[in-house]
Amino acid sequence: SKTSNTIRVFLPNKQRTVVNVRNGMSLHDCLMKALKVRG
């Protein structure tokens, strides 16, 4: 089974995003990807 960790990230202006960290990806990469999608 694939394991994925879901991390809630609290952003300024009362924004919130959820990042799924996959195996083999660093938290930083996942964060940058999530913020790019939002931006």
Rank of each mutant, 00 (worst) to 15 (best):
S1T: 14
S1I: 09
S1A: 06
S1N: 15
S1C: 13
S1G: 12
S1H: 14
S1R: 13
S1P: 15
S1Q: 15
S1L: 10
K2G: 14
K2T: 08
K2R: 11
K2V: 03
K2M: 12
K2E: 08
K2Q: 15
K2N: 14
T3I: 13
T3P: 15
T3N: 10
T3S: 09
T3A: 15
S4R: 14
S4G: 09
S4I: 10
S4T: 15
S4N: 12
S4C: 10
S4V: 06
S4D: 15
N5T: 13
N5V: 15
N5H: 09
N5I: 07
N5Y: 08
N5G: 14
N5K: 14
N5S: 15
N5D: 09
T6M: 12
T6R: 10
T6A: 08
T6K: 04
T6L: 11
T6S: 11
T6V: 15
T6P: 05
I7M: 04
I7V: 10
I7L: 10
I7T: 03
I7S: 01
I7D: 06
I7P: 03
I7F: 08
I7N: 00
R8C: 05
R8P: 02
R8S: 04
R8H: 04
R8L: 08
R8G: 03
V9A: 12
V9G: 00
V9E: 00
V9L: 02
V9K: 06
V9T: 14
V9M: 02
F10H: 09
F10V: 02
F10C: 04
F10P: 07
F10T: 06
F10L: 05
F10S: 09
F10I: 03
F10Y: 09
L11P: 00
L11V: 02
L11M: 07
L11Q: 00
L11R: 01
P12R: 02
P12S: 01
P12L: 01
P12T: 02
P12Q: 02
P12M: 06
P12A: 03
N13S: 09
N13C: 13
N13H: 04
N13T: 14
N13D: 09
N13Y: 08
N13I: 05
N13K: 07
N13G: 04
K14Q: 06
K14R: 08
K14W: 06
K14E: 07
K14N: 15
K14I: 08
K14T: 06
K14S: 06
K14M: 09
Q15H: 01
Q15L: 02
Q15R: 01
Q15K: 02
Q15P: 01
Q15E: 15
R16L: 04
R16C: 05
R16H: 13
R16G: 04
R16P: 01
R16S: 05
T17P: 00
T17A: 04
T17N: 02
T17R: 06
T17I: 01
T17F: 06
T17S: 13
V18L: 03
V18I: 13
V18A: 08
V18T: 09
V18G: 02
V18F: 03
V18D: 00
V18E: 03
V19A: 09
V19I: 12
V19L: 13
V19F: 12
V19D: 00
V19T: 15
V19E: 06
V19G: 01
N20I: 12
N20K: 13
N20D: 04
N20H: 12
N20E: 06
N20Y: 12
N20T: 10
N20S: 07
V21S: 06
V21E: 00
V21G: 11
V21I: 06
V21F: 12
V21A: 11
V21M: 03
V21L: 07
R22F: 03
R22H: 11
R22L: 13
R22N: 14
R22P: 11
R22G: 07
R22S: 08
R22D: 04
R22C: 10
N23C: 06
N23T: 11
N23D: 11
N23I: 08
N23K: 10
N23H: 09
N23Y: 11
N23S: 10
G24Y: 06
G24A: 12
G24V: 14
G24R: 10
G24C: 13
G24S: 14
G24D: 08
M25L: 09
M25E: 06
M25V: 13
M25I: 10
M25K: 13
M25T: 12
M25R: 08
S26G: 07
S26C: 12
S26I: 15
S26T: 15
S26N: 10
S26R: 07
S26H: 06
S26D: 04
L27P: 00
L27M: 11
L27Q: 00
L27V: 15
L27K: 03
L27R: 01
H28D: 13
H28C: 13
H28R: 11
H28N: 08
H28Y: 12
H28Q: 14
H28S: 08
H28P: 01
H28L: 11
D29H: 14
D29R: 06
D29A: 09
D29E: 07
D29G: 11
D29Y: 11
D29N: 12
D29V: 09
C30G: 07
C30W: 02
C30I: 07
C30S: 11
C30F: 04
C30R: 03
C30Y: 02
L31M: 08
L31T: 06
L31A: 06
L31P: 00
L31V: 07
L31Q: 01
L31R: 00
M32I: 11
M32K: 09
M32S: 07
M32A: 04
M32R: 07
M32L: 13
M32T: 11
M32V: 10
K33Q: 03
K33T: 02
K33L: 06
K33D: 03
K33E: 01
K33M: 06
K33N: 03
K33I: 01
K33G: 02
K33R: 08
A34E: 03
A34G: 10
A34V: 02
A34T: 03
A34P: 14
A34S: 12
L35V: 04
L35R: 00
L35Q: 00
L35M: 11
L35P: 00
L35A: 06
K36S: 06
K36M: 12
K36Q: 14
K36E: 05
K36R: 10
K36T: 08
K36N: 15
K36D: 06
K36I: 09
V37G: 03
V37W: 14
V37A: 07
V37M: 14
V37E: 01
V37L: 10
R38H: 00
R38C: 00
R38P: 01
R38G: 00
R38L: 02
R38S: 01
R38Q: 06
R38Y: 06
G39V: 02
G39C: 13
G39A: 07
G39S: 13
G39E: 04
G39R: 04
G39D: 15
